[in-house]
Design a protein around this nucleic acid. Sequence first.
DNA 1: GCCGACTTGGCAAGCGGTTGCCAAGTGTTG
DNA 2: CAACACTTGGCAACCGCTTGCCAAGTCGGC
Lengths: 341, 341
Amino acid sequence: MRVGNPTIYDVARVAGVATSTVSRVFTKPGRIAEATRERVLQAARELGYQPNPHARALTSNRTQTIAMVVSDITNPHFFELIRGAEMRAKAAAYTLVLVNAEESTRMELEQVRRLARSVDGFLLAASRQPDDKLVELAAGQPVVLVNRQVEGIASVVLEPWEGCRQIVAHLASLGHTSLAYLAGPTNSWMAVSRWAALRDAAAEAGMSAVRTGPYTPTVASGGAAADAAIRTGATALVAHNDLLAIGVLRRLADRSIRVPTDVSVVGFDDIFAAELCTPTLTTLGGAHSNVGRAAVEVLLESLGHPRGQGPTPQIVLPSQLVIRDSTGPSADQRPDPRRSR
Amino acid sequence: MRVGNPTIYDVARVAGVATSTVSRVFTKPGRIAEATRERVLQAARELGYQPNPHARALTSNRTQTIAMVVSDITNPHFFELIRGAEMRAKAAAYTLVLVNAEESTRMELEQVRRLARSVDGFLLAASRQPDDKLVELAAGQPVVLVNRQVEGIASVVLEPWEGCRQIVAHLASLGHTSLAYLAGPTNSWMAVSRWAALRDAAAEAGMSAVRTGPYTPTVASGGAAADAAIRTGATALVAHNDLLAIGVLRRLADRSIRVPTDVSVVGFDDIFAAELCTPTLTTLGGAHSNVGRAAVEVLLESLGHPRGQGPTPQIVLPSQLVIRDSTGPSADQRPDPRRSR
DNA sequence: GCCGACTTGGCAAGCGGTTGCCAAGTGTTG
DNA sequence: CAACACTTGGCAACCGCTTGCCAAGTCGGC
């Protein structure tokens, strides 16, 4: 098997130094004199030497790899997030491993355990674990939560509270007096936060708010969600995410309920499809790729500190209401000539 | 650091056997007698032993990891592919590493080299490398091409030829006599194959066919692509993929060119957004997740054979024309009362 | 009862790096 | 010129697991 790749020994021989010197050239910048360093690099170049990442990981316990666990890889909302994380990781010479939890708490846990030894840290996006489980996980290895906040664990989230207030304000300004929130999974932090924020903002604005669901946040669930929401009599439907909202739009179209004439619909995430569907979807978006980027940055930062030390920042990135065609004046108001033209 | 995880030594001690025995229990099924085996497993369970993947990789050269390189991670077309591959990999207890080449030949190569030692094999999706480079790469490590065929390298592709014939037949049956192909990148195998198939099929059907482009397959490029295609006078526009097609639809809408009344538009891939845009998009789709799955299977199969040995299957999965609202009777025919009603 | 074939488990040498410790070399200072 | 503080590079012991080779044990057959 001497056909194999060159090792640190080969480089050391060619450069006429000890293996430790070669190793340090690659790992401890500044530790080796410039002249020696150059000689080693030259030898390495000649031989086409590439450090073996496993051998390196064995002693140093650093793999230059981070894992990102997403609750459902098919949700387009994650694409931007993944993309941002991937790019930032690459810039730091880290490899990003993508892991799909398929909306399953158990699978999520299993995967984290399986990879625990192979990666330097985890990005847990939209984790469905209970808080205490997360605390336990975070105690075992570096973890950054994405779109979820838990006391004592570093996190990056896209601002939901002010965003929800904006949604309510937008709807209120259109004359709506009742909204229904078509909720996401009960173990989704975002679902909980959004409902709390919507309810409070609605109360402040003198609007009624009810919650239906929970629903799996997919297009397929939109049908049932739409029917239930319409039954509440609300004129504004706020869906847990764009996927669900798109499903709702479809069902409403099938039932010949006009959007936004009869009811308004709002989503979350501003996925690519939100501006393609009919009508185009008003949604609370934000720079998801920045969320991914920031999450990686926080994780890298925490890798620099000894375990358990270091800060656990809770970063909140701004969200942004994107108003499109799925929201309009409340049906209740249409008789009013000033509004109905 | 004795706080660290238990090792094979700990297990051996508890079970009262040699470390080699423990190792073999985990790697050579059948090599160890049932009774001993049970004792070892019991000890491992008690200690919560988890094999260290790096130590294992160091000697065995197997990492239980495969890398998937995609030309552009933001292209929704890949999502299903990634998903299929990820699930199949997980089922085989392999980890899938996702790598983004950002449509750059150089970056693609760089990443492959960087990861070469950390993974057991590569899935190269829509690779932009020239054929000979791919042959070179495939000689160095197990490689499966996705949506690209090269002599002597295993591959899985979604059938383009018959699919293109179907597109042409569909357009011909609507009375179209001229089509324009808005080409993808010149170094994209699919772009080349599609154009060849469209041209041949068009010739057979007595239809004229021209090619414009190449264009980056994104929504943003659709504007220029639409303008150029309209100038050709063709009544049917076949875009390299759905993203480009959606960009085309937008531009046409801006220019008040009606689809499908004035021109018909066809895409490729059948991404999620294809049935959301206005009008909904006729497109050549297929089960992309199956492609991902099959690719992983082929790769796993080839990992079972010694390097250079083993078959290099060229798998072709069926594509499927999904007819939606963006294609309709040719404008040339509309004066005909039978068609224009 | 002995022999050969087959099982089973242990020994120990790696795999390719990292890193604590030490010694030689260099330069500075009084 | 001696004393001292830094630099710089080498030695060697791991990191945790795999695996070729060997020895002891089992078992059936003659």
